[in-house]
Write a protein that binds this DNA or RNA. Structure first.
Length: 453
RNA sequence: GGCGCUGUCGUCUAGAGGCCUAGGACAGGUCCCUUUCAAGGACCAUACACGGGUUCGAAUCCCGUCAGCGCCA
């Protein structure tokens, strides 16, 4: 246990920004590493955007990443912790109290309806746990508006008041706030309170090298949930942006990361977001998942994105998932690869039309395959399927069965790529394979599988 | 414009004066494996921003320049 208290203070904008998620993650990692408290505070002062949905997005994202908080709204309409309320919109009287206190010091003055704070004109040294001692020469620092003409207190002020009222000991936040920190320190000092420790972490940059904004592709955490990424993989990737476990390791269990995470090991330079690397890490987690875990993931993901998958028989669905899983690495791909088997009215891709059904011999081969599978005695197995392919190839005087195999794949799935073919056929079963071959053959015979359509 | 931060392969990083003819990973390339696609294996290419110091010795320390980013106005 320790008396460290850190916080994540997002505003409900309708999405949980990937940079915000990373800030939350680093606060969480530090709290868990030292055994302190992690506080969630919602900075919902912008009434126009302050909706329940927007707040829920934050809770959902945090939970998805597994970042549990010790104090804050519990996400179910209640509160946990003694230092609330944890919504800024409910803290008006607290701000008013501190505003009065600040006014009593004589360090403020009215100016055109706004209340301004007299900034000290002396140098300020921010002792940052990541950036080191950063000196600001404030001789020309303008005074700070702390209450607008409309009476609303400004961000810097409420942020400071909240942090001191909530007993925050370490402020871990994006480096974009480093230059503002001297203002915050001035406010703490004016209120007669010792400022917290600061740790400014590097920013996450987009492809073009500027601060990732919500307009950038993949800037919302929800994007990865929708795309069927695994939260542990996203979390692992985010840890690697500005922090490194040291020697040649990257894919690490979160417990191991918690154990090793130190603020002093944080990088100082901004990091570009690399979607390809995240995709790779996701693949690592995808393959490492236990079967039961995968089954649970697939069930949940398909329920949301492919509700019709529920009508497949359990054995068919499980079989398909098994043969598909090894070829792909996200839920989105899983859903797309399931598509050809969710209906008997499946479509044929342009590649399949072009590569497989533009060949005049295809009709003959399809007939042969259909007859071969129809005539099969007993269960359809990998070996039986292979034999049929070989025989059809021989009958057509083809030197190798490859051509037949490719055509067969296109015929039963409509696509030129897919799961390993023989295991797929076995999963589908003889009846379905024969029916699909019949359908394709008949469409082909009536000239409906050409390139044009 | 002022102030601040940063600057190692395309990207994320290891590196805290000699272990560095700079290591790993992703991405890229070649090959192997493979009756598609993945996965896997082997190999290749690519970096200490630049210029000055300090030192026997610098990616590592200091200064300057340049560049990028951020904050404020």
């Amino acid at each position: 246990m320790s008396d460290v208290r850190v916080r994540f203070a997002p505003s409900p904008t309708g999405l949980l920004h990937i940079g915000g998620a990373r800030t939350a993650l680093f606060n969480w990692l530090y709290a868990r590493h030292v055994g302190g408290k992690f506080v969630l505070r919602v900075e919902d002062t912008d009434q126009s955007r302050n909706t329940q949905e927007a707040v829920d997005v934050i809770f959902r994202g945090m939970r998805w990443l597994g970042l549990d908080w010790d104090e804050g709204p519990d996400g179910k309409g209640g509160t946990q912790g003694e230092r609330g309320p944890y919504f800024q919109s409910q803290r008006g009287s607290i701000y008013a109290k501190h505003l009065e206190k600040l006014q009593a010091t004589g360090k403020t003055y009215e100016d055109g309806g706004a209340l301004k704070f007299k900034m000290p004109k002396t140098p300020c040294v921010v002792k940052d746990m990541v950036c080191g001692d950063v000196t600001f020469d404030r001789t020309v620092e303008p005074d700070l508006v702390i209450r607008r003409k409309d009476g609303s207190p400004v961000f810097h002020f409420v942020n400071v008041v909240d942090d001191l009222e909530m007993g925050i000991t370490h402020v871990i936040r994006g480096e974009d706030h480093l230059s503002n920190t001297q203002k915050h320190i001035a406010l703490y000092e004016a209120l007669g309170v010792t400022p917290p420790q600061y740790a400014h972490i590097p920013l996450i940059l987009n492809q073009s090298g500027s601060k990732m904004s919500k307009r950038d592709d993949g800037a919302a955490l929800g994007f990865y949930e929708d795309a069927g990424y695994l939260p542990a993989a996203v979390r692992n990737y985010l840890c690697l942006l500005g922090w490194s476990p040291g020697a040649n390791e990257e894919v690490l269990d979160i417990h191991e990361i918690v154990k090793r995470f130190e603020l002093k090991d944080l990088n100082r330079s901004n990091a570009r977001f690399d979607a390809a690397k995240l995709f790779w890490i996701n693949g690592e987690y995808w393959r490492a998942m236990a079967d039961s875990e995968f089954a649970e993931f697939a069930k949940t993901y398909l329920a949301k994105h492919r509700p019709t998958a529920a009508s497949l028989s359990e054995s068919l669905r499980d079989g398909l998932l098994r043969v598909i899983r090894e070829k792909i690495r996200t839920g989105k791909e899983l859903a797309e690869w399931m598509d050809p088997y969710l209906t008997e009215d499946y479509s044929y891709s342009p590649e399949a039309r072009k590569k497989q059904f533009s060949n005049p011999d295809a009709g003959k081969l399809l007939h042969g395959l259909e007859q071969g599978f129809a005539a099969l005695d007993g269960d359809l197995t990998d070996a039986a399927a292979e034999m049929i392919c070989k025989k059809v190839a021989e009958d057509a005087a083809l030197p190798k069965p490859a051509k037949v195999i490719h055509l067969l794949r296109a015929a039963v799935s409509g696509h030129t790529v897919g799961p390993s073919l023989f295991p797929l056929l076995t999963v589908l079963g003889k009846k379905t394979v024969v029916a699909r071959l019949g359908r394709t053959r008949s469409l082909f015979d009536s000239g409906k599988l050409g390139e044009a359509t």
